[in-house]
Computed example of a mutant assay.
Amino acid sequence: MLLKNLALFLRIVEKGGLAVAGREMGLAPATVTDRLAALEEHYGARLLTRTTRSITLTDEGRELVTGARRILAEAEETEARIKLGVEKISGAIRLSTPIDLGHNRIVPILDAFMDEHREVSVDLTLSDGIVDLVGQGIDLALRYGKLTDSSMKSKKLHDNHRLLCASPEYLEINGVPQHPKDLVQHNCIVIRFGTQLFHDWSFSVDGQQQTYRVQGNRVANDGELVRRWCVEGRGLALKSEWDVHADLKAGRLVSLLEDFAPQPNSLQMTYPAGAVQPRRVRALMEYLSNAFATWDQTV
């Protein structure tokens, strides 16, 4: 019963409420309340602070989230080893990636991985915003740039080269920028991460990184939409090489200011620091690492 109560506790945290967690698990509200109380009695600590509108984790609750995930992952892995044998992996993997990267690069890798491991299922979240890995129960996230959250661990997958792009139609009408300072005269498509606008674009000028603030009449929190607008000739966009690789090859986009290309950032695999990754997640991490290691050979 302890394992079932731990699973219920995690579902409550992920869904943000007792009622919705109970509905998803087919439990009556009174049963959910009783089982949460039993879990708090077992550990001798209050795990959640509840109001009429929300729940928040106590310090003990936050500690149990990490511990519960580890306990349940180990129990599930042990069961899978007994039922399926040591060579097979099984179970669900919850993965989060940026939207364009997911569509253009990650989904084909996941398809190949799942073809090899038929007992594995994947729950994929495509989002360009900030995702709460612990709160949403996500095993692994792919993110660009340096890790700043000390509660997370990360492993570098690959350098990410960013390219300034435009469609041939846009350039024919508006001209070709020759220097980053020319961007002030162009309509630049800006992506937004949560409430933060990514409108300070960096370029390498005379061996130094220089930042130029751009502006335009289109802003979106969806990288795929930014790319589509760029292909349609709506403006310039600064995109990851993976997002626009096919468009460049097909001539739908043109790479600009290559002599001023910004320094690459990195694509990271990020996961909660205190979590013991299940074998299936470790297998996917290795599969992703191998896939990106051969990227330069396939472009």
Rank of each mutant, 00 (worst) to 15 (best):
V13L: 04
L57D: 03
R62N: 11
P180K: 10
I130C: 04
R234D: 13
A141Q: 14
Y170M: 08
L57K: 01
A30P: 01
R50K: 15
D259I: 03
D111M: 10
G223W: 04
M269R: 03
E79P: 00
V244N: 07
H158A: 13
L2V: 09
E232Y: 08
I109K: 01
R279L: 14
D206K: 13
P108D: 06
G22W: 02
L6H: 09
G194S: 08
L64Q: 11
E63C: 02
R280V: 08
L142T: 00
E60H: 14
V134F: 06
Y287C: 07
N221L: 05
F113L: 06
A21I: 03
Q268L: 12
V122G: 00
A220F: 10
D206P: 02
L256F: 07
M285L: 07
D149A: 10
M269Y: 04
V231F: 00
A28T: 13
N221E: 07
D243H: 12
G194M: 07
V120L: 08
D243I: 01
L238R: 01
S150T: 14
R143Q: 14
E232V: 03
R53S: 13
Q208C: 06
G251I: 06
R143I: 11
T52V: 11
L8E: 04
K15I: 02
L110C: 12
Y43S: 02
R46C: 08
R162P: 02
L157I: 10
L126I: 09
G235N: 02
V244A: 03
L142Y: 03
P177G: 11
Y144S: 11
R69P: 02
R192T: 13
K83I: 07
E60D: 15
L248E: 03
Q178E: 15
V131Y: 11
A38G: 09
E74N: 10
V13K: 05
K146I: 06
I106C: 05
T52Q: 12
V86N: 12
T97P: 06
T52S: 12
T51E: 04
C165F: 06
M114P: 00
R81Y: 04
F198P: 05
P177C: 06
N160K: 04
E74R: 13
C188M: 01
R35N: 09
T51G: 09
Q136N: 13
E60V: 02
L248F: 12
N290H: 10
I55Q: 01
N160W: 04
H199Q: 15
M152P: 00
E74D: 09
I130W: 05
N160E: 15
Y287S: 11
L84W: 07
T148C: 01
S154H: 13
M1I: 01
T66N: 10
V120Y: 05
N217Q: 12
A37N: 07
Y170C: 07
S266Y: 10
H161F: 15
F292R: 02
Q185V: 08
S167M: 04
T211E: 06
A166K: 03
R162F: 14
A141W: 04
L3M: 06
R228C: 01
G22Q: 01
P264C: 02
L3T: 11
P29I: 05
K181N: 11
E77G: 13
H161T: 12
N160T: 15
L72W: 02
N174V: 01
L57Y: 03
E87R: 15
V219T: 13
S121T: 15
D149P: 03
A45M: 03
K146G: 01
D59Q: 10
F292A: 10
